[in-house]
Amino acid sequence: MTVEERIEAADRRKLEGNDYFKEKKFEEAMQQYEMAVAYMGDDFMFQLFGKYRDMALAVKNPCHLNMAACLIKQKRFDEAIAQCSIVLSEDEINVKALFRRGKARAELGQTESAREDFLKAKKHAPEDKEILRELRSLAEHDKAIYQKQKEMYKGLFGPRPQPKPKARNFILLFWQWLVSLIRNLAKIFTRKND
């Protein structure tokens, strides 16, 4: 097979996979995408450069992304992350790969990693409503966890101690008053004697 024939065969498999995906036949779609990627094996990709490499990646990367979409639908999030990471190793600013990896990470509870992916995707597609919705969802999730933790730890250490007012030492106050009185009397007597 020539390079063009291999790329065309992979593209046909990708299109068949897309048809299965639309019918919600995710396993069948996965098989087609995997066969398409098999046409673009590492040995084959290693030999390509220039326009042929770009043509091959234009088929291969969407197959990985479509596999990730199938895996997310099947709740196989770790595998979806791996598929997106393959694409990101070739194209680190691929918005779809960042978004899908972020979505899979969020489903696994990896909120910080998910947020990083969504923020990188937002940087390159600031108007994308899906990305903004996922970021809001993460913020609400964080807020809910904070409230839950706040309730959980409430009263754990008891109420905060209130500062006690200092007891007035009446002896000290009396002594200060007495010293002040004696000074004033002394001033008065010294003025009279002058």
Rank of each mutant, 00 (worst) to 15 (best):
N66R: 01
M67S: 08
I72F: 03
K75Q: 08
K75M: 04
F77K: 04
I81S: 05
I81G: 01
A82Q: 13
A82M: 14
C84V: 03
S85E: 12
S85D: 03
I86R: 07
S89K: 02
E90H: 10
E90W: 05
I93R: 11
V95E: 10
V95I: 12
V95P: 05
A97Y: 01
F99N: 05
F99I: 06
G102W: 00
K103Q: 13
A104Q: 00
A104M: 04
R105Q: 12
G109I: 08
T111R: 13
E112M: 07
S113P: 05
A114K: 02
A114R: 04
E116A: 14
E116T: 11
F118T: 03
F118R: 02
L119G: 03
K120D: 09
K120E: 11
K122F: 10
K123S: 15
A125D: 15
P126I: 12
E127D: 15
D128K: 07
E134M: 10
S137K: 14
L138I: 15
A139V: 09
E140D: 14
H141P: 04
H141E: 15
K143V: 08
K143T: 10
A144P: 06
A144Q: 15
I145L: 15
Q147T: 06
K148L: 08
K148T: 07
K150Q: 09
K154G: 04
K154M: 10
G155D: 03
L156S: 07
F157R: 06
P159A: 11
R160M: 09
P161H: 12
Q162A: 14
Q162S: 12
P163Y: 08
P163D: 07
K164T: 04
I171R: 00
W175F: 13
W177Y: 05
L178H: 02
V179A: 12
L181T: 10
I182K: 10
N184W: 14
